[in-house]
Design a protein around this nucleic acid. Structure first.
Lengths: 120, 120
DNA sequence: TTTACAGTGAACCATATGGTTCACTATCAA
DNA sequence: TTGATAGTGAACCATATGGTTCACTGTAAA
């Protein structure tokens, strides 16, 4: 599905930035205002606002403005799709390398056997 | 560590493109040449070469050129770090939302109870 | 020995990204 | 009412990204 595709696109893109991953870690600990985050990551308010917007767009963060301060917290998306994608591919990987693993194992045994033969 | 950071950066960035995820899926099935991949994804050789290079850079793919054809296969990196990062944050999420979950559960129960009350 | 094929690299292009400054609005506090 | 504070939006900038074309190299095949 296209939706599924673009979803992974935007989430992985969101996660590909150090600052944004940092913001997520921060919000995992406690909520924070834009100002808080901007200070913690040595950035202008405008810059941080952009990052927060991107995270919000990806559903990873939700925000609420009360008075003049906008409070950010972790969003409802829990990276299920991303975890699933990665997990699926770790399995592909494994399947693909099982043969190799066996070969390596086989070679190791052969090595041992050869060593033993040599000794004699 | 900075290395750890840039590593996640490049991998997540590599994964944030539909074509590249597609290439990984493809290579999970079987090896392929640049030409194969370029055709399958309706792209010039040069374009596909770039994608492959990015995946190779991220350690997700390895290639070998024999004769005039370069064969691509899955690399040795199995997305451990990425899986770990995501898992860690799913836990953060959970911790943060346990209270919410309980609330939701409570509301569901209440709903059921209400429904039952209504029936009578 | 041509000729066709697979890949490569440089140059180019449009758009996206990560950041800034500056001018503005809205709100809180004195 | 007058500042100071928090955020927003537009404009701008440098660099990165995803793609192309074109000219080139090396290899395979006729």
């Amino acid at each position: 599905m296209v939706h599924y595709q673009t979803r992974l696109d935007t989430t992985f893109a969101a996660l590909s930035d150090v600052t944004r991953r940092g913001v997520l870690e921060q919000l995992g600990g406690s909520e924070a205002s834009i100002t808080d985050l901007a200070q913690r990551f040595h950035m202008t308010l405008t810059g941080m606002k952009k990052h927060v917007s991107i995270l919000e767009q990806a559903g990873l963060v939700t925000t609420q403005k009360v008075g003049r301060v906008r409070t950010c917290k972790l969003g409802l998306r829990r990276l299920e799709e991303e975890a699933a994608w990665i997990e699926r591919h770790r399995q592909l990987w494994s399947a693909r390398f099982d043969a190799l693993d066996e070969l390596v194992e086989h070679l190791k045994c052969k090595e041992k056997a050869d060593a033993r033969t040599k000794k004699r």
